[in-house]
Nucleic acid binder design. Structure first.
Lengths: 334, 334
DNA sequence: TTGTAAGCGTTATCAT
DNA sequence: ATGATAACGCTTACAA
């Protein structure tokens, strides 16, 4: 570690460390001449400040944490890309943490972050997160937290979501307009904020067309694909829905699998519609009607809000809603 | 920042900070009794050590950087998941950095990481990275670097790749066996290590069947999808290949788009095969024959190697090769 | 087995 | 405009 430090530069220049530090930070109390000398030497020696010394002193890390339930999903990787783009642009690093849809893991991650390692947190709750207690210590210490997509209602912090209720409502109307009478709704878990809103939008649309009462169908699924496939097959055989509305992408894939195995033709025998950010949806067999969430924009917005809060440029705890897009394709049409 | 520190705990317990520190680190020189007392108080007060103080003192950050050319790609998000899983398990944080296929951006990222912020680097080169100079300072300082998938040959460090040459060779043979005589190879960029090996595998397979000489066709593409689509359409019209071998996933999608626009039927008029980790490939129209890279395993292995090097458990600079899988589907068959 | 004290590389508070 | 010095919170010789 023969690293070049402030002290060494100060010695070389015959200046104090304080002056060198201030010069590098472009302080107004330093003469331009000195600044130039210092910066020249810094460039020459490839000086890079030690971030830990600086963090220790300033109680800030220039780092944020992104906690997501799953990394290798298109939606969350687009979110991640947006977060990284903004953070990088503003000089912040992003630590990526994956809860794997487990509340325990999420608690653990959060616990290890309380040390001040990060200046703020972006969180999308796991499917098993039933409480927001684990975030309390951050709130107490006024470490900014911004939620996105899967929010925690009781937590009074800023959030970024898509228009889950509305997009689900109008997607369901689309199915109804296509003649569907028995539309099934595939849920992920039992309490995710976004899924519940989507479910409500679906129910209200049914209601509006008097299709509700005993005709609303919901199936609760998990992240276990094999299990999901079996459950969907049994569900279809039992209830014989004429449409399936998958509240998350991978449930649509399982639905395609199930239909194939049951020899059901989409959309002739059954229509399928899903929340999905899969670009290749247009080349599926049949092309899948999707609700595309503005994931990249959501990630960017969440990061912007978080960084503004970190830098005290904002303390707003509102919810930003960005609209999803319904893309009609053959899976819901003849 | 009314944080609980070592000092405070020491005061409360009537011990020195040194003892408390050692107790928390489970030092052999501390009595079990003291350890128990200290740990009890730490738990009670929810003590979390300040990572910056510790990093400053020990010159290690318990953090690694993952530099990838693109975040929202299935392959790289699976890589990321593997890296995160191992790192988290070993108590390391992962900073995610995206070069966006730009060498300049990659250089910039690397430059900002030299400060000691990370204990090691996992890198997959951008499509425009022609040199490994930017990594020299890490090598000099003996900061471990592990490359994966897109490696830099001149850099004498450990790496993890898939069997690009062999998988490409046998995939090309598959096309030849299916009767293809004029197989086109779609490249990404002009010098990526993995793409070049895939290209060589393709050429050698053609050669083996005397299909080479003036019959090998290569088209160099970028990440610009609109441009790619146009180039592929022109290319197909000009050369009329009977098969297209896409060396990365998104080029296969553009190929599907191109075929659709040109009203070419896959696989009747033209066969398509691609490197792709897209799970839903089986539901494409037609189902796409893919070479699936073991991305998650590659990420895990790269992380394991890097962490071993960081902890001096290994200094091996070898290349680990994990085999891809060829999954035959309709896009290469009638 | 425990304590003392120096030091990691910055930044911030006083002086000058 | 610049310098001296303490402090951030931890680890680690060296003492005891």
């Amino acid at each position: 570690m023969n690293n070049i430090t402030l002290k060494k530069m100060a010695e070389l220049l015959g200046l104090s460390t304080a002056t060198v530090s201030r010069a590098l930070n472009d302080s107004y109390e330093i003469s331009q001449k000195t600044k130039d000398k210092v910066n020249a030497l810094a460039k020459e020696l490839n000086y890079e400040p030690n971030p830990f010394a600086s963090s220790l002193r300033q109680h800030k890390s220039k780092t944020i944490a992104l906690i997501i339930p799953e990394i290798s999903s298109i939606f969350f990787s687009q979110i991640t890309k947006g977060v990284e783009a903004i953070s990088n642009h503003k000089g912040y690093h992003v630590i990526i943490c994956c809860s794997n849809e487990s509340y325990d893991t999420e608690k653990n991650i959060v616990k290890h972050l309380i040390s001040g390692r990060v200046d703020g947190i972006l969180l999308s709750a796991s499917a098993n997160t039933f409480s927001s207690e684990h975030m309390d210590r951050f709130i107490e210490r006024k470490i900014p937290v911004v939620l996105f997509d899967r929010i925690l209602d009781r937590l009074n912090v800023a959030s970024v979501t898509s228009n889950d209720y509305e997009s689900s409502f109008s997607a369901t109307l689309h199915l109804i307009n296509k003649g569907c009478q028995k539309i099934a709704f595939l849920k992920l878990g039992s309490s995710l904020s976004n899924i519940e809103k989507r479910h409500k939008g679906y129910l209200d649309a049914l209601n509006q067309h008097k299709l509700n009462s005993n005709k609303s169908l919901a199936l609760e699924l998990s992240n276990d694909k094999k299990e999901n496939l079996e459950l969907i097959k049994i569900f279809i055989k039992t209830h014989q829905p004429d449409a399936i509305f998958a509240s998350v992408e991978h449930l649509a894939f399982s639905t395609y699998d199930a239909c194939k195995e049951l020899r059901l033709r989409i959309p002739t025998d059954i229509k399928v519609l899903a929340y999905s950010n899969l670009e290749i949806a247009r080349h599926l067999s049949p092309p899948l009607t999707t609700i595309v969430q503005p994931a990249y924009e959501m990630g960017k917005n969440a990061a912007i809000i978080l960084l503004n809060q970190i830098n005290k440029k904002s303390t707003d705890n509102g919810n930003i809603v960005i609209s999803s897009e319904l893309v009609l394709r053959e899976s819901t049409d003849f």
